[in-house]
Design a protein around this nucleic acid. Structure first.
Lengths: 169, 169
DNA sequence: CTATATTAGTTTCTCTTGCAACCAACGTCA
DNA sequence: TGACGTTGGTTGCAAGAGAAACTAATATAG
C-alpha cells in the first residue's frame, strides 16, 4: 500500500514495469510453452488437441462423468467440452449412456479403445511432467506447488472482484 | 519425492495421473485466470486485448522498436504483432516512423495519447501484480521466480526436442 | 395440473488466431 | 548490373474459441 504512493511521487513509475519481469506475462509464456511442448507428444500421434486430451484424462481418472462435471473439473467452457466430447465420440474413444433419472444429462466414459490410448498416454504424460519438474531445483518444488495454488485462488478472486465493480452497472 | 519411483513399479500407473495435480494443466489454468483477471482491468476501460497491451507496455518500456523486435520481446507471432500494431495505430496510440536505412522495417513508438494511457495503466498493472504476488508466502517468492524461469527454459527445450524427433521423418 | 424458471447440452454467429502465401526491400554472388 | 535467396511485415484462409440463442428435460410456484 505504501510502496505505491512512494512510486507515484518519486522516480519514473513507468520504468518499473518491465514485461519480462511481470508475473502475468511470465506465467502466460511459461504455460503456453509447456502446453505446446506437451501437446507435441500426443497431438501428432493421436490427432487430438488440448480439450480432447483433458476429457480423456478426466474420464480415465474418474470412469464416468457428465459433460457438466467434466467442464467443472477441467476448467473448460461447456461448448469446448461439448465439442471435444463430440469428436471423441465420433472416434469411438468414449461412449454416452443416458441417465434415466435425468434425461438432460448423460454419463460419458471411455471405450476399450479410449482406455488403450489413455493407458498408453498417461505414463508418457507423467514422464513429461517429471522431466519438466526435473529442471526445477528440488528444494524449490514445494514452494512452486504452494505458489501456484495461491496464485490460482487469488486470481480467481481478483477477477470476480473487478467483475463485480464493473458488471454491477 | 520418493513417491514417483514407488509409483513407477507398483500400483496402476494410470491412477497416478490426476489432472488437478498435473503441472502443465495447473500452469495453464493459473495463467489463464491471471490473464483474465488482469485484462478486466484494462480491456473494458481502453478496449484493447492482450496483444495490444503487450505492445503498449513494450513501447512504454523501450521507447521505439520495430515490429520484429516487439515480437521477439513479447513472445508473440508476427501476425499478432502486426494486427495489434495496426489497431493501436488506427487509434492513434502509436506512430510508425520509416527507417531510412532499411525501408522494410519501421520504428514504432507511443504517441502522447498512447503515453497517457501507458502512464495510467502501468501503476495499475504493477499494483495488480503486487496484490497477486501478495497471496504467495514471501518465503516462497524467490523459489517461484526461479522455478518459472527454469520451467520456461526447459519446456522450450523439450518442445524443440520432440519437434526434432518428429519433424525429421 | 399448468405456467414459469432452471439446467444440461448443442448450435449459430462472430472474433481471434496461426499458418501459408504473398509483397516489397535488402543482401549477395556472379 | 542483375538474378536469387532472405528478411520485415501484411493478408487470405481455415480452424478454434467464447457469447448468446436455442432445445429438451427437470424443478418449482401457484
Amino acid at each position: 500500500m505504501t510502496e505505491e504512493s512512494a512510486q507515484r511521487e518519486a522516480s519514473p513509475p513507468e520504468a518499473a514495469l518491465k514485461l519480462e519481469h511481470f508475473l502475468p506475462y511470465r506465467l502466460n509464456v511459461c504455460a503456453s510453452l509447456v502446453s505446446q511442448a506437451l501437446s507435441r507428444v500426443y497431438a501428432d500421434r493421436y490427432k487430438i488437441g488440448v480439450p480432447e486430451w483433458r476429457v480423456l484424462v478426466t474420464l480415465g481418472e474418474f470412469g464416468a462423468m457428465t459433460a457438466k462435471a467434466i467442464g467443472k473439473h477441467t476448467h473448460m467452457h461447456k461448448t469446448k467440452v461439448s465439442r471435444a466430447v463430440a469428436l471423441l465420440e465420433r472416434r469411438k474413444l468414449i461412449v454416452r449412456r443416458a441417465n434415466r433419472a435425468d434425461l438432460r444429462e448423460a454419463f460419458l466414459s471411455l471405450t476399450p479403445a479410449g482406455n488403450d490410448i489413455y493407458s498408453e498416454l498417461a505414463p508418457i504424460a507423467l514422464d513429461f511432467a517429471e522431466r519438466l519438474m526435473g529442471s526445477v531445483d528440488a528444494a524449490d518444488r514445494p514452494a512452486l506447488d504452494r505458489a501456484l495454488t495461491k496464485l490460482t485462488e487469488r486470481s480467481a478472486q481478483l477477477a470476480a472482484e473487478v467483475a463485480k465493480g464493473r458488471g454491477g452497472g
